[in-house]
């Protein structure tokens, strides 16, 4: 299968004052097109750091991060921003919607960033994805008028509307109750299967881990386990 992202012997060390804190230590990882991959591990194991590296939000201290056909090494902030704009979608733990924009406008936001000036085309794509995530009726509401689950659905729609190469979700269910968390995982899984979009999400929730088609477990910044999952079929 096509590899959409690859980490080769990646190290990331943070400097806090005079102390150097290694967050990721020699991680190598291939992420294949269409994967629904979970990165699991306890707090401080390096999950978020790896997502940040894959998301071109951070650069490694050493090693190589390849996404598509290139590496993120030595790129300017502007080029990294353009790269994220083109290839990546993000879902955050705390939803991070823009509170002054409606659901529709939040989802439209990344399309504008992609330079799609045609409003008709944008409206069509926004409408389609909102229908897919089950929020067609709530398009004109503000985020504050939605439940946590609904807000995370908007975030998923916002990540998917631009057809990204890779969607990165940092603990997407951590702020949700278990039922809603299950609904969000189902939604992401459906999108993964329907559109073939590659998902990488971090979690420490076993119920979320078992939904993954591949599970990578980290411990102290290193891969402790890398195994195929059954996408939750055994659980169901």
């Amino acid at each position: 299968m096509t590899v959409v992202a690859r980490l080769i012997d990646v190290h990331k060390t943070y400097k806090i004052g005079r102390i150097r804190v290694p967050a990721v230590r020699g991680v190598s990882l291939d992420i294949e097109q269409g994967a629904f991959m979970s990165i699991a591990g306890p707090s401080g194991s390096g999950k978020t750091t790896i997502l940040n590296l894959l998301g071109a939000l951070d650069t490694p201290t050493s090693g190589t991060v390849q996404i598509g056909e290139g590496t993120t090494a030595g790129l300017s902030l502007k080029t990294l921003a353009d790269f994220r704009n083109t290839h990546l979608g993000f879902v955050f733990q705390t939803f991070n919607l823009i509170p002054v924009l409606s659901v529709r406008e939040n989802v439209d936001f990344p399309l504008q960033l992609q330079g799609i000036g045609n409003k008709g085309e944008r409206n069509e794509r926004v409408h389609k994805i909102l229908m897919e995530v089950g929020l067609g009726e709530l398009a004109d509401r503000r985020p504050t008028e939605l439940s946590g689950g609904q807000q995370q659905r908007v975030a998923v729609a916002r990540a998917l509307v631009k057809n990204p190469t890779l969607v990165l979700a940092d603990e997407p269910t951590a702020n949700l109750d278990s039922e809603t968390a299950g609904e969000i995982m189902t939604l992401m899984q459906t999108m993964n299967e329907k559109h073939g979009t590659t998902f990488v999400f971090s979690t420490h929730d076993p119920l979320v881990m078992e939904r993954a088609s591949r599970l990578v477990r980290l411990h102290d910044g290193q891969i402790a386990l890398d195994e195929a999952g059954d996408g939750g079929r055994s659980a169901s």
Binding site: A56, I67, G68, E69, G70, T71, T72, A73, G74, L75, T79, D82, F83, N85, T86, L113, Q114, G115
Partner: peptide, 8 residues
């Protein structure tokens, strides 16, 4: 090669 962002 370094990542080449599309002209967006």
């Amino acid at each position: 090669a370094a990542v080449q962002a599309e002209s967006i």
